Simulated scan of single mutants.
Amino acid sequence: MSVSTVAGQGDGTLADQAYRSISDRLVTLQIRPGEPVNDERIAAELGFGRTPVREALKRLEHERLIVAYPRRGTFATEVQIADLGHISEVRKQLEPLAAGLAAERAGEGERAGLDRLLAQLADASDGDTDLIRLDMTVHRAIYAAARNPYLEDTLIRYDNLATRIWCLFLDRLPGLAGHVHEHRHLLRAIIDGDAEKAAALATGHVEGFEAAIRSVI
């Protein structure tokens, strides 16, 4: 199964491309919590100049994925379990809002895209290395279909933070595919235009995510 880059669609500016690449590494823990983030090394790896990478790092610092200390350097933020409750408080309010709006506002092309994601979900299994990226892709498609750019930007930030926690405990969480497959019912409700059902399913998904993490900590 092939899943498109989760951090955004299209190329955008070099700073946008750098942001998406570094964000993906941070969220999926290719850059581990507490690990140094060196702009020169990342620029060389990505084939970019240091200026777009530095612009990307400023954005990532605002999104709490990295932290910069004077005279010490820049590091991936540590994952604090207390963050789970704070993140869930926000997502319990905004994920249902986005799902309901998506059901009401999604256009024909967006619903067709969600239908294609349904087909990808049907083929997903626990052995699939793209499961986490598929989960993120589904979330981003729903946020975009809500047609509120401020809500979309906010939810991407919080989904990144939540996914980072998920990746940290991934080896202790059974049934990853089952968690991802929950999105099938949510996508179907959105495609069918059932805003109330979509909002309820989104609430249950966030609550289930939090409960799963708390069960292994």
Rank of each mutant, 00 (worst) to 15 (best):
S88M: 05
L60Y: 02
G107E: 15
Y69W: 06
K58I: 05
E40M: 10
A106Q: 06
E40V: 14
A98K: 05
H62C: 11
G73K: 02
E40D: 14
R64A: 14
L29N: 10
V37N: 07
P52W: 03
I87F: 04
D39F: 08
T77N: 10
L60A: 11
E55I: 03
H86W: 07
V67I: 14
E95G: 01
F48P: 04
A44F: 02
V27E: 10
A82C: 02
E95C: 05
A102R: 00
L60S: 10
Q93L: 12
L84T: 03
T77L: 05
A98M: 08
L29K: 01
G34W: 14
A56T: 00
L46M: 08
G49W: 00
E55T: 11
Y69T: 13
L65W: 01
L94F: 09
E35R: 07
L46T: 00
P33A: 12
T28F: 11
A44T: 13
D39M: 12
L26W: 01
V79T: 08
I66H: 00
S88W: 05
A76T: 03
G107A: 02
I31M: 07
E95D: 06
I66Q: 01
R105Q: 09
G49E: 11
G100C: 12
A99V: 07
A106D: 06
P36Q: 14
E78S: 07
T28M: 10
G49H: 09
L65H: 04
H62T: 01
V90H: 04
I81C: 00
Q93W: 09
E89L: 11
E61M: 14
R54P: 05
R105T: 02
E55L: 09
R32N: 13
R105S: 03
G34N: 14
N38Q: 10
A68T: 13
T28W: 02
G85M: 03
V67F: 14
L29G: 08
R64W: 06
G100M: 13
T74S: 11
D39H: 13
S88D: 09
G73N: 10
R32H: 10
V27C: 13
D83G: 01
A99P: 04
